[in-house]
Each structure stands twice: as C-alpha cells, then as structure tokens.
Nucleic acid binder design. Structure first.
Length: 559
RNA sequence: GCCCCCUUAGCUCAGUAGGAUAGAGCACAAGUUUCCUAAACUUGGUGUCGCAGGUUCGAUUCCUGCAGGGGGUACCA
C-alpha cells in the first residue's frame, strides 16, 4: 500500500516538475503511517522538504501536489488532505482495502513476504554452548532469537542455514572429562579429590553413573593420562546429545553442527594462521604470536593467537572457523552471541578483513543476559558450583511456546528478567495464549460453519467472495492492520529484529478479539455478509499463522 | 582509565533512517455470557521520554557532556 501512495505522488510530481517547478531533482521523502489515526492511513512530508528549494510555503506546495493527485487517481483515495505544517495525509477508499484483502488470501504468500534476500545464502550461528554442561536460560534466549531470525530471513527470501559450533577442543572440555573421571573414581570407591576448578553439578555425577553402567570398572584406578582422552570424548558426546535433545524439545533443529576439533584435524587452524602470516598480519613478540588486529579500524589492540607455551588461543580457532564460514560460500554470516562477548566482535571483523572479505558480510546479534527470578527473587546461576536452573527445567515447568514468546517480546539487546512463577501464573493471561487463542477461535468458526449452513466454503479458495459488505469500522480497521504486515515484516527482516513481529501479532489479535465480541461472523440470515466476514477471518488467520510460524511458536487450531 | 549497551506510566517493556496529541501488557476498580471458545470483551489514567547543553522549521529519536545501571577491557573459555 506504500507503493500505491508513492506512485501517486511521483505521478503527480512528474508533471509539476515539467510545468511549474524550477528544480530538477526530488529530495528523498517519506511515506509513513501516522501515529494518529485521524491523520489518515499514510502521510508524506514531501511538501515540507520542498519548501526550501522551491522557496515557497510548504502548504502551498502541498496544495499543488494534492490537486494533481486527486485529478489522477481519485478512486484509490477517500481523501487526500493537507494538515499541520504541510503534511499530506492519504486516506484510502473502502474499495482499495477490499482489493488488498484478496492479496492476503493468495496462496503463495508473496504479498506478505517480500523477497529481499533474492536467494542469497545466510548462515545463522547460534547457541553454540560449550558441551560441558546443560543449557541454561541464557542459551534459551539465544536459541529463541536465532530460531526466529532464521525463520524471518528464510521467509524474506534468503537461503538460511542454522549452525551450532561445538567447542570440543578447548581446555573446558578437558576439564569436563577430568571432572567425570574423578567422580567416576569416587563412585567406585577410589579416594581422590575433585580439583577446585572442576565442574561440580549433579550432571557430573549422573554422567559418572552412566559411564559405570556402560563400561563398568574398566578405568578404575587407571591414571587420567591413560584414559582421560576416552572419558573426555565420551563425556562431551553425552553432554552434546543432551543439548541436542533439549534444543529439539525447545523446537529447534540445526542444519549443521560444526566441530572445533575437526578444524584442527583438517589443519585448518594452522593453515589460516599461515595465510595471515603470508599477508603480513602476524608477528612474534615476547615469544608469543600476535595478530595485528589494531591495524583495522574496529579493534584497539593486537591479539595473541599462539601463546608462549605454544598452545593456540581460543581466538586462533575462531579465526579458522570464521574464515571457513565465508569460504563455504555464504553471502552473509550472522553470529548470535551473549552480550558479554561484544568485545570479541572487533577482532573477528578484523580477521575477515585481513582475509579480504567485506566486513559487512559479518554481523553479530548481541543477546543480553537473562536474570532468572522466582517470585521476584534472583536464582543464582553458576555452572561451577552446579547451582543453576537448566533450560530443560524451565521449559518443562513453563512450556516451550511461552518461554520462546517471552524472549521475543523484548529487543534482544535489552536486559530481561524472566520470572518463572510469573510466566506460569499468568499462563491464562499470557500474551502468547492471547495470540494463539485468536488463531484457535478462527479455526473454531470454520469448524462450526457447516452446521450453520456454510458447508461448501473452501478456506483456500475465497478470492471470489464479495467482500464489499465489510464496512464496519472494526472490519476496515482489521484490514488496515493486515495490510501493514508486509511493512512490519520487511522492517523486521532488514533490522534483524524478530520481536517486531511479536508486537504486531499481539495488536492484530487484540483487534480480532474485539471484533469477534462485537460482531457475529456466521450470520445465519445474511449469507453474503457471513461469507464476507469469514473471508476477513480467514485473512486474519493466515497472517497470525504466518507470524507465529516465523517466531517458532505453534499456531493451534484448538485450545 | 578506555570501550559498548541500557535509562520512556506504579511494574515489565515497545516506539527513533527527526515529524503532528508518546503506546501496549501487567497490576488496580467496575461491568459484559439465552449468541461462532470468557485463555475473550467494554470502561476508567498517569509521563520532566535520566539530567544539561547543541544542531533546526521541528528532538524521546541525531551530536556533546554529566549521572545511574549492566557488560567488556586476559598469553581465560
């Protein structure tokens, strides 16, 4: 609908440029929905922007434009008015809205989706939790955002791949192995102390028990350097399997799982460093190897890639990993990180530039910390001490849909207090149910329809139904709202902000609930009106379903 | 010290590529069901948009400074 107004303006201005105006170029003007409904459906600031170059009062200019427009396309608009300092407000005619309603019904959903990706390949990497323990609520937020963003971009015409990066090569994984090893020995009666920095959660004990069940006393009193590798390997695979299960229960499936170890195995880390060295971006200092990060604008200091002791830093494998991603041919790579990693962005960006990649192809979405509360009191979260609530526990207690939806009712970079009790207590008045309920209600209407005398209505084929009877303010309001979805969708996709969809859906559901209470849809004694209203309801259902699906939340037919 | 993010209604938060009278949910109060799902609806009200400057026709939005909150600033992961 934005294009409609833009075209009307451009058409009018074209003749004015030829005849009355003594300028050659048009400034970039806006066409936006005014905050205040009384100001029409869309408004432009063009006349105000032209005031200076044309040296005339903005309202005078607006008058000229309006005169042209109303002469050209009077059937599209109910009114085109000048207001305030020189805004031009457009109000569409009912016929225009009715015409647009059909576009929503169209099977291919192209009207809703806008192809801005044009088939370009995007990789979204998210969660990527260390396989050293269960997922916690913060991972859950990253997971929800990653899922929704992937879906959003996919709907916007990108070819999306979801990846989980497994940190299976570092010291932390070794520490996990050691922790399980020690607990294994302890359970079997060997007197051995758990090192202070080891993991201590219950899940370590559970892993030890499972290990005993699997291999018995095979490694009892065997020194760690003899069996550590086996146990470490076994332990992180077990943790990874748990993580995978948790994510699946949360409704998330990855297209690929990339192992850090595999990068080392293929010698990619060393190869990447060699390549950097060849380009002159590595140097030795204090017997360590450094990357010249500071020669790129974003980073303020150089970074170590190989330590004094000859070990690679975590950064070294990240260099190889991010290089590998772009080498794999993605047009864009998006990383979703906890906000505490934001200092890391600059050096990765520097690395990619060092390899000659455009830095715009790498994007990081920061997800702020989640504070987990119970009845307003903070729940302590420390992986070391093992005192924390896992994502699994939260999902079991609260539900996957509610949890995801709550994460998506905020911008990802703002802090979030997640109160388990509140999420549960409000479950009957929870925003996610509010939206789902609207969807279920519409489905219920269509289930009822045959019994009320509307037996041969095909939900997928309603384009021929006459909707000109939809003239109630609530009906036109709903259509108007439906027609803004493409704009919301496009803005959300361009900004990588799925939460905009969440807010839109709540508003749309609100309008529908209100309409539903006020007007009967299956009007028994007026078939034409009933059919028109069913068509409207169907359009609402389509958009709700579309939006919920993008968020990764169920759109139930019954509740 | 330096860098990044946040500060909007009692609470939790939307909203800014500068625009007209700044929004929602929760909480609180009162009402709505012979009728397609009451997980719903209707009505009721509050703001120094953290503070102070600047830029301009116009600033919650952009710039600078300050304050408060959070995070980062490892040859940790």
């Amino acid at each position: 609908m934005k294009h409609t107004v833009e075209n009307a303006i451009l058409g009018a201005v074209e003749t004015l440029l030829k005849t009355k105006w003594e300028i050659s170029e048009l400034p970039r003007f806006e066409v936006e929905a005014p905050k205040n409904e009384a100001h029409g459906d869309l408004a432009t600031n063009l006349a105000m922007l032209l005031a200076r170059p044309l040296k005339r009062a903005p309202r005078r200019i607006a008058e000229e434009i309006v005169e042209e427009i109303t002469g050209n396309s009077s059937d599209l608009f109910e009114s085109v008015q000048i207001a305030g300092p020189g805004f031009i407000n457009f109000r569409f005619s009912n016929a225009f809205w009715h015409e647009n309603l059909y576009k929503i019904l169209h099977k291919d959903r192209l009207y809703l989706r806008r192809n801005i990706g044009e088939g370009r390949r995007v990789q979204v990497e998210f969660v990527s939790a260390n396989p050293t323990g269960p997922l916690h609520i913060g991972h859950g937020r990253g997971a929800a955002v990653g899922l929704a963003l992937s879906n959003l971009l996919e709907a916007a015409g990108y070819k999306v791949e979801r990846e989980f990066y497994i940190n299976d090569a570092g010291r932390q994984v070794g520490l996990l192995g050691l922790s399980v090893y020690v607990r294994y020995q302890q359970v079997l009666g060997s007197k051995i102390e758990l090192p202070e920095n080891a993991y201590q959660g219950d899940y370590i004990g559970e892993a030890a028990e499972a290990l005993i069940a699997e291999i018995g006393k095979k490694y009892l009193d065997v020194p760690f350097d003899k069996c550590g590798e086996d146990i470490t390997d076994w332990s992180y695979r077990r943790m990874l399997a748990e993580i995978k299960t948790d994510l699946e229960n949360f409704g998330i499936r990855f297209d690929s799982w990339k192992s850090e170890k595999s990068l080392y195995a293929a010698n990619e880390v060393q190869n990447a460093l060699d390549a950097l060295k060849e380009k002159g971006y590595l140097y030795e200092h204090d017997r360590a190897l450094w990357f010249k990060s500071s020669s790129f604008q974003d980073d303020d200091k150089d970074r170590v890639v190989v330590k004094q002791d000859g070990e690679y830093t975590y950064f070294a494998s990240d260099i190889a990993y991010h290089k590998d991603k772009l080498d794999r041919g993605y047009d864009y790579i998006i990383d979703i990180w906890g906000a505490d990693h934001h200092g890391y962005i600059a050096r990765i960006s520097a690395v990619l530039q060092a390899f000659g990649y455009d830095k715009d192809r790498f994007q990081v979405i920061l997800v702020q910390i989640v504070s987990l509360l119970r009845k307003g009191l903070p729940v302590k979260m420390s992986k070391r001490s093992g005192e924390f609530i896992t994502l699994r526990e939260v999902v079991d207690e609260v539900g996957a849909d509610i949890t995801k939806f709550i994460f998506l009712t905020r911008r990802s970079d703002s802090h979030l207090d997640f109160d388990i009790e509140t999420a549960k207590q409000q479950s009957s008045e929870n925003p996610v149910f509010y939206v789902q309920y609207a969807h279920a209600r519409i489905n219920s209407i269509f289930r009822q329809a045959p019994a009320k005398g509307f037996s041969n209505v095909d939900r997928n084929n309603m384009q021929d139904i006459d909707v000109s009877r939809l003239t109630e303010p609530e009906e036109l309001g709903l259509i108007r709202k439906l027609c803004t979805y493409p704009m919301i969708f496009e803005a959300a996709a361009r900004a990588y902000e799925p939460h905009r969809i969440t807010f839109y859906l709540q508003e749309l559901a609100g309008l529908f609930h209100s309409y539903y209470r006020k007007h009967r849809i299956l009007v028994e004694d007026d078939r034409e009106q009933a059919l028109a209203r069913m068509t409207l309801a169907r359009a609402v259902e389509i958009v709700l379903h579309e939006g919920l699906t993008i968020l990764g939340v169920q759109a139930p037919e019954k509740m």
